[in-house]
Design a protein around this nucleic acid. Structure first.
Length: 883
RNA sequence: GCGCGAUUAGCUCAGCGGUAGAGCGCUUGCUUCACACGCAAGAAGUCACAGGUUCGAACCCUGUAUCGCGCACCA
């Protein structure tokens, strides 16, 4: 074995291990396995996508779960894939087409354009998959899926036909959210409300039947006046009720003279604006509904791209809607009708993808009345599906309670084409809902389906019969709360409808990663670091560990590169601890500390490991990943490196071979144990060290032998490194804690007296009880002292001292005794101890405390009082000794 | 308007009834024979505010404030 280098260099290690895992087929799920199954379907990233920190978090969590499940003896399927992402992908390819060939998709025609998109997909679609591999994702790549795979696409169309047959899908002319840039309808979920600063324009109109009476109207959209077909007031509004039935003259367009009826409708809020509403049925959802109630004509004055059409009249036709707004205000001014422009903030719906205000538009679309809404709601309400964190259950429930039909058709080309065929003109037949063409002359619906209409089948239609039999329902879904409606809720409904089962047992919602200012990471802000750069700089393991460690359950994460640096540092710490072990000679491949004469520090360490392991199992059960990371970090860095290894050095440098051997075995057991438990989080470095140090799975473990390596090592659920009677463990732990605390106190004493680290000192101990030589050696080693000698006569008055659980420790400083300084120091210490003592005593003096408190807490307080008063006594004696 | 979250050390955040924690940053000392991506020591907090419950509250309850998110409204 080559010697380990001084600093861990992740790049080569990570690449070579990943290749070995894939080659050995370790990630490939076996549907015929008899082991219990564990499965996850990846939230398919967009084919256009590149890896973001959000993906890193999300997929690291899934990888941890997958690898942990392998370790706990499961047959694991982590099914990967990508999403065709209709609008996003089409937009990217169209942009490229415009840039490189100065053409639009219409110049190419549907077929040629789609060919381009497929070419683009073949070329770029694998990027994000490659990036996931760099991260170490243990997906079953042999089962990679794409939402436009032939088989999958067929399922999507079958579902459409089926739901249509059940009467749940229908076509209708409705008010939809129209994106004037993408030129397609959108679902309600794709509309993002944004606060906008604008104006509320007030203008007045004279009542035709009552000259001299004016109605003042407030609107944020004067550019739609040309589409107005009524003016509405609330019939209960005393100010205006008497005018209902009369008319006003519509001011625009100038060359068309139209009288609008004044109608009464309950939907008008008389608190808002002037209490008079202009009604534009073609360009506002509420107005459209009012129009239906009052049988109003509908005048559509806009083109699909948000420009105004000829019905808007002279001077407006051809203008963009926002230019038209300015123009309309000008005209009203000229007419002397504009009375006021009042600054006004309102919410405007923006298209999620194109980031422009959507336009309410009347159009013919396909809609879905969701299936299994009640069952889907109950599945979560009744705990059949569990959400982590639980609070999202309420959000989910609320959405399902108020669910609206889903507009599923999109006026795009890239996607699953709607399986509806229209008859040749002459035939007079109605449309047919089927996948294959009914024959010559039939024309397929030009629209495609909303991307989510394919994603909602992801949990089951990515699997074939055999795989589904073994791995469906899946174990857990790991995703962001931002797609709880888009995806999670819909998948639950689809699962219930098409498999009769829930698609997953648990849903873990990650937090959202934000920048230092708390803003969402986004391409446009340029505030999202490239994870590949971070991997290059800190290693995939460093990135994974760093991000997991700061990602508490469901809380948003403010990203700071420092966090990743910590992850890298931890990998390096691990590396160097292994390096140190390697320098002591070969490791025991299957170390077992049982039966060895273990010193206290070893018992203490092994017990700490077992305690940590138990806590870790609990943390996994509730998906508290950051706790898993924290436990391993604290145990390894603190308990193992800082204390145990340092304390063991005197023994390792000593001559007692038996003691040395015991220490090395304990190190091997702890190191290999840590590598195993850490593997799901930092797979590459742990695998590398496992191999380099020569550890092996015991023969009893499944996936045994050298072939499998760490990836397939099965950790027994209740594995313990230490099997000793409880009393023995407690005694050894107490002694070790006392020793370590004393060491800390002595180091503090050194620092206070500014003894340089390299300078040796002597410590003298007035022991409280017998103390073994080996413990004194440890003490000396960790305090850089020549020794801890047992006091035979009192040192000179004023010798710095500290009271510890081992006894009082003196640090003789020849010729440097400063009585006054020492007096002050002790006095300060007394003040502190007294304060603690007062607190404890006050509690114990309180009868209701003593009566009501649980026994263990009471005992705890009593011991504390004991300890503090003992310490106080010693300190007082010392102070007296100083004269 | 309704709902949800956050408010703890300079920063980023854990903790969520029984002696206030971590990492970073800061101060001091260390090229100590695994690691300066390190070691040791230290300073630093009325746990947003006001009430309440409790023997005991950062933690539970009620309210307030500030920030953020979602839903609804949005003329």
């Amino acid at each position: 074995m080559s010697e380990l280098s001084k600093a861990y260099a992740p790049a080569d290690v990570e690449a070579s291990w990943y290749a070995r895992w894939v080659d050995s087929g370790c990630f490939t799920a076996d549907p015929s396995s008899t082991a219990p199954s564990y499965s996850i379907v990846i939230p398919p990233p967009n084919v256009t996508g590149i890896l973001t920190l959000g993906h890193v978090l999300n997929n690291t969590l899934q990888d941890i779960l997958a690898r942990r499940a392998r370790q706990t003896g499961h047959e694991v399927l982590w099914l990967p894939g990508t999403d065709h992402a209709g609008i996003a992908t089409q937009t990217v390819v169209e942009r490229q087409l415009r840039k490189e060939e100065k053409k639009t998709r219409h110049d190419l025609g549907r077929e040629a354009f789609l060919k381009k998109v497929w070419e683009w997909k073949e070329k770029h679609g694998g990027i994000i998959i490659g990036q996931l591999k760099k991260l170490g994702a243990s997906c079953d790549w042999s089962r990679e899926r794409f939402t436009m795979d032939e088989a999958y696409a067929r399922k999507v169309q079958e579902v459409f036909v089926d739901l249509h047959g059940k009467g749940l899908i229908y076509r209708g002319k409705r008010m939809v959210n129209w994106c004037p840039v993408s030129l397609t309808a959108l679902s309600d979920e794709e509309v993002i409300p944004k606060k906008q600063k604008g104006y509320l324009y007030h203008f007045k109109l004279e009542v035709v039947e009552a000259p001299g009476t004016w109605l003042e109207i407030a609107t944020t959209r004067p550019e739609t006046i040309m589409g107005d077909t009524a003016v509405a007031v609330n019939p209960k509004d005393q100010r205006y009720a008497h005018l209902i039935g009369k008319h006003v003259r519509r001011p625009l367009p100038l060359d068309v003279e139209v009288q609008l009826p004044i109608i009464g409708d309950e939907a008008v809020d008389f608190e808002f604006g002037t209490g008079v509403l202009k009604v534009t049925p073609a360009h506002d959802k509420t107005d459209y509904e009012i129009g239906l109630r009052h049988n109003l004509p509908v005048i559509d004055i806009m083109n699909a791209d948000g420009t105004l059409n000829d019905l808007a009249g002279e001077g407006f036709a051809g203008l963009d809607r926002f230019e038209a707004r300015v123009e309309a205000v000008e005209r009203l001014k000229e007419l002397g009708l504009l009375t006021r422009e009042e600054p006004h903030e309102n919410n405007v719906g923006f298209s999620e993808r194109a980031d422009v205000p959507i336009e309410p538009r009347l159009s013919e679309q396909w809609f879905l009345k969701y299936p299994k809404t009640v069952e889907a709601r109950d599945a979560v309400r009744n705990g059949l599906i569990r959400f982590f964190p639980k609070r999202w259950e309420k959000v989910y429930d609320h959405w399902l309670e108020n669910i609206q039909d889903w507009c599923i058709s999109r006026q795009l080309w890239w996607g699953h084409r709607i399986p509806v065929w229209y008859a040749p003109e002459s035939s007079g037949e109605g449309p047919r809902i089927q996948i294959e063409s009914p024959g010559e002359g039939w024309i397929q619906d030009p629209d495609v389906l909303d991307t989510w209409f394919s994603s909602w089948l992801w949990a089951h239609d990515t699997m074939d019969e055999a795989v589904r039999a073994k791995f469906y329902p899946t174990s857990v879904l790991v995703t962001g709360p931002d797609i709880i409606f888009f995806w999670v809720a819909r998948m639950i409904m689809a699962g219930l409808e098409y498999t009769g089962e829930i698609p997953f047992r648990d849903v873990y919602f990650t937090g959202i990663i934000r920048d230092k200012q708390g803003r969402k990471m986004s391409k446009s802000l340029g505030n999202s670091p490239d994870p590949l750069d971070l991997i290059a700089k800190y290693g995939a393991d460093g990135l994974r560990f760093g991000i997991i460690r700061v990602a508490p359950q469901g809380q948003d994460i403010k990203f700071d590169e420092k966090q990743i640096e910590e992850g890298r540092n931890f990998a390096n710490k691990l590396w160097n601890a292994a390096r140190f072990r390697e320098m002591q000679g070969p490791c025991n491949p299957s170390p077992d500390p049982a039966g060895l004469p273990l010193p206290d520090i070893a018992i203490h360490l092994l017990h700490r490991f077992d305690t940590m392991h138990a806590a870790l199992c609990g943390a996994y059960a509730d998906y508290r990943f950051h706790e898993v990371a924290g436990l391993l970090y604290d145990f390894f860095w603190g308990d193992y490196c800082d204390w145990f290894v340092e304390a063991a050095k005197p023994i390792l440098n000593g001559s007692d071979e038996q003691a040395k051997n015991a220490i090395l075995t304990v190190m091997d057991a702890t190191l290999s144990g840590t590598l195993r438990l850490l593997h799901p989080l930092m797979p590459h470095v742990t695998e590398e060290l496992w191999k380099r140090l020569g550890f092996q799975a015991p023969a009893s473990a499944s996936g045994s032998g050298e072939r499998a390596g760490l990836l397939l090592y099965t950790v027994p659920p209740a594995e313990k490194l230490l099997n000793l009677p409880e009393t023995e463990i407690t005694a050894a732990s107490t002694r070790t804690t006392a020793l370590y605390t004393a060491i800390h106190a002595a180091r503090n004493l050194r620092a206070e007296f500014k003894i340089p680290s390299q300078q040796q000192v002597r410590f003298l101990l007035a022991p409280k009880e017998e103390i073994h030589d080996s413990r004194r050696a440890i003490f000396a080693g960790l305090t850089r002292a020549s020794g801890l000698e047992i006091l035979d006569k009192m040192p000179p008055a004023g010798t710095p001292s500290v009271v510890t659980d081992l006894g009082t420790i003196y640090m003789p400083l020849e010729g440097l005794v400063d009585l006054d300084a020492e007096r002050k120091r002790i006095a300060a210490e007394i003040t502190k101890v007294e304060a603690e003592l007062v607190k404890v005593e006050a509690k114990l003096a309180d009868t209701s405390f003593v009566e009501k408190v649980p026994a263990n807490v009471l005992e705890d307080h009593r011991q504390r009082r004991e300890k503090w008063s003992e310490k106080l006594e010693t300190l007082k004696t010392t102070l007296q000794g100083l004269g």
